[in-house]
């Protein structure tokens, strides 16, 4: 099916590549990122791991312009986010999934998914609803279209949040600890949806503590420590034979628990 999307034609978001170089970020006295270089290829699934405070969430938030780098270059989908005038071009063309879901509580699942289709893509109601329902179907929640977030489980809410992002046909999907707020038995349904996205070739950057997801889905694992990228590589290598002592310590700690 051809999807006509006037907004997508105007935008400068032409690729799914990400390229960060020399990124620094401080919050007051705290230097969170101390010169980070990261490249992500189109279709790649990259998982950021590291202890809390290592800067991985801040890095992810910089990639979708929810935080501004103090210095360095940030290219996302062909848009220079370090150029304040051009940075907003990526909004509506990348998807972000938050730890706290951030669904709109006064709207149904379908209402959440349709809002930006109506107001940003300016689709008609019928087309927006069709695309909204298709997005809910992709996460296995087409039967919950009329439920409000409060009536859904945490896992279902997060899947609606993923559908809301997917409905916009994003060039890249970002996930910021998408399963950290979930009861353990609900984690699987969310990582399952993420896994199928990865298989479909979606470009994904994921911050997570789910080491199993990192091991079996990531193309590349990036270990961050103290505001820098300490080590990166395919999951077999990083998990199997980490080069750095800090990586070994971290993996030892998280894999034991």
């Amino acid at each position: 099916m051809m999807i006509t999307d006037p907004a997508a034609q105007q935008t400068a978001v032409t690729t799914s590549r990400i390229s960060l170089s020399g990124v620094h970020k401080r919050f007051g006295d705290l230097e969170v990122l101390k010169g980070v270089d990261v490249d992500v290829e189109s279709g790649e699934v990259v998982v950021l791991i590291g202890a809390s405070g290592s800067g991985k969430s801040t890095l992810l938030r910089i990639m979708c312009d929810l935080e501004r780098a103090d210095s360095g270059e940030v290219w996302v989908g062909g848009v220079p986010l370090h150029d304040r005038k051009r940075a907003p071009e990526i909004f509506g063309h990348v998807g972000m999934v938050f730890q706290q879901f951030n669904l709109f509580p006064h709207k149904t699942a379908l209402g959440n998914v349709m809002l930006a289709l109506l107001k940003v893509r300016k689709l008609g109601r019928a087309e927006a609803e069709e695309r909204g329902r298709a997005a809910l179907k992709r996460v296995g929640l087409d039967t919950k279209a009329d439920s409000y977030p409060a009536q859904l489980s945490g896992g279902q809410q997060q899947r609606v949040a993923i559908a809301r992002a997917l409905a916009m046909d994003p060039a890249i999907m970002f996930f910021d600890e998408p399963t950290s707020a979930l009861d353990p038995e609900l984690v699987g349904e969310v990582t399952g949806v993420m896994r199928s996205l990865a298989e479909e070739g979606m470009t994904m950057v994921v911050v997570t503590h789910e080491m199993r997801f990192a091991k079996d889905t990531a193309d590349r694992v990036i270990f961050m420590d103290g505001g820098v990228v300490l080590e990166q590589g395919p999951p077999e290598r990083v998990f199997g034979s980490p080069a750095e002592a800090r990586t070994q310590q971290f993996l030892h700690r998280v894999l034991d628990t």
């Binding site: 907004a7 979708c64 929810l66 909004f91 509506g92 063309h93 990348v94 998807g95 972000m96 938050f98 951030n102 669904l103 709109f104 809002l115 930006a116 107001k119 940003v120 949040a161 809301r164 992002a165 916009m168």
Partner: peptide, 10 residues
């Protein structure tokens, strides 16, 4: 809520 809306392009 602001952040989710912002990334969606609202």
């Amino acid at each position: 809520q602001w952040e989710a809306a912002r990334v969606l392009g609202l």
